[in-house]
Amino acid sequence: MFEIILAAGWPIYPLILCSVVALALIIERFSSLREAKVAPPKLLDEVLTVTRSNLPSPDVVNKLAENSVLGRVLATGLRAVINEPRINEANLRNAFESAGRAAIHRMERYLNTLGTIAAAAPLLGLLGTVIGMIEIFASQGGAGSGNPTQLAHGISIALYNTAFALMIAIPALMFYRYFRGKVDEYVLDLEQAAERMVPHLLRFTVQR
């Protein structure tokens, strides 16, 4: 592997950095976007059951907020009703929407970076290819007698960088699309949960 890196020349070092960053982001997103951390399947039903007859205490709401991303959104709605018993439907929906936007921003963290790596890696590979071609042309000299060592080095730079760039870009793009799809699914879950919670919480408000 070290010999390949030496043969590929200096253009491969930015690609190695991109590969390390991409791998770290993929592992981090896999951990952060797990269902248990974002939207546990039974959490909404449990909250509806607990709040069937009365609102929970602040301590219970705080624990709910620490449970998951969905728990944080539901806790925001509960706090809005607890802090403002006369809250109307529009303001309650606004509270859920604000919490939802913050949740989406949290779920989308680092995805733009991963997408940028997927787009930039082929360009970095192209840069290595161009540098390799320059090495090839330089090896030919002015009289047509080429330098075999420099010619081989130029070919190595061109091919290794192109191949390594594609090895980074293809998985990065696939995981980027995968995580985007997961986020979209979770956003739908959050929206449906908020829609169920709004009429449920309005029962505890004091209407003017």
Rank of each mutant, 00 (worst) to 15 (best):
G9T: 07
D184G: 07
A65I: 09
I131K: 07
L23T: 14
A65Y: 00
G100N: 04
M1W: 12
I87G: 01
L190I: 09
L25A: 09
A193F: 04
T129K: 09
R106D: 13
T129V: 11
I87Y: 00
A143R: 11
A90F: 05
A90R: 11
R29G: 09
P199C: 04
G71F: 01
A169H: 03
L166E: 06
V187K: 03
I170K: 04
A118P: 00
R203C: 07
H153G: 15
E135A: 14
L6Q: 15
P85K: 11
H105V: 12
M133N: 09
L55Q: 10
N112V: 15
E84V: 10
A158G: 07
A143K: 12
P148L: 12
E89S: 12
L43C: 10
G71S: 05
L127N: 03
N88F: 03
I12Q: 00
I131Y: 11
V183Y: 04
S53H: 15
V38N: 02
L127E: 02
I5A: 13
T49V: 13
V47M: 02
V38T: 12
Y160C: 06
N83I: 02
V206R: 15
P11H: 08
L92H: 01
I136K: 08
Y13G: 02
H105T: 15
T205G: 06
R180P: 03
T205S: 12
G154V: 06
L6A: 15
N147Q: 11
R180M: 09
V73N: 02
V61E: 00
H200G: 08
T116F: 12
L33C: 06
V130G: 10
G71R: 00
